[in-house]
Design a protein around this nucleic acid. Structure first.
Length: 204
DNA sequence: CCACGGATTGGCT
DNA sequence: GCCAATCCGTGGA
């Protein structure tokens, strides 16, 4: 963990680039939440892009609302939404102010604070050694493991609570691309990106 | 005010 | 593979 912290926090200039460039380059970076003396962290292994201008699946597609206004900020903020009456999902706002572009964090590979993540998500110890692969292998699971909910929406990702650290550079040949999961409109856009063969993906 | 459905998950058939 | 859970944001009357 120490060498990841030494790598340094991603700055506003990283987030304020074109949506799909940010989405692809977030793979391999380290998502971090400082939780008291605990550092919860995981390597980002799966993401999806959402674009307010022409992507009908994006929450920002119908314009600014109270819920989605943070999506229209310039890049570098956290957007958290609540869905299906049960789950939270977290996104990284990208691009320029007014664009409504964001990257959904769909899955991470746990790195530190794993005992706390297990407690947050299951309320007990792991039953077996396969259950670790069910800890953060989806957007709702990741938010639950990290203890993130709507109260965290709007956080500045260059501050000291929730942020992303530079990590390993993933080669193009190791990045998989597919249609996005769980949407009913703009279904053809190939805007899901993932690290091929990583065991913590929400799907293969 | 009310109706609808969702960027998901887990349990049951 | 199918489907219920369960809240609330959003849009239309």
């Amino acid at each position: 963990m120490k060498n990841y912290l030494a790598a340094g926090k991603l700055r506003k200039s990283f987030y304020r680039r074109e949506l799909l460039d940010v989405a692809r380059s977030l793979l391999g970076k380290i998502f971090v939440k400082v939780d008291g003396k605990n550092i919860l962290s995981g390597k980002i292994v799966e993401v999806e892009g959402y674009h307010g201008d022409f992507d009908e699946a994006a929450h920002s597609y119908r314009g600014i609302t109270k819920r989605t206004e943070i999506m229209f900020e310039s890049g570098g903020y956290l957007y958290v939404y609540f869905t299906y009456g049960t789950h939270h999902c977290c996104n990284v706002v990208t691009g320029r102010k007014g664009q409504g572009t964001a990257v959904l964090i769909r899955a991470v590979e746990p790195l530190s604070g794993i005992d706390t993540m297990i407690k947050n998500r299951f309320g007990r110890k792991l039953k077996n050694n396969k259950e670790i692969f069910n800890l953060t292998s989806g957007p709702g699971k990741t938010c639950q493991a990290f203890g993130i909910d709507r109260k965290n929406s709007g956080i500045d990702l260059t501050a000291n609570e929730i942020f992303i650290l530079d990590g390993e550079k993933i080669k193009s040949k190791d990045i998989g691309v597919s249609k996005r999961i769980g949407i009913s409109r703009s279904v053809e856009l190939p805007w899901r990106f993932f690290i091929k063969n990583n065991p913590y993906l929400s799907r293969k």
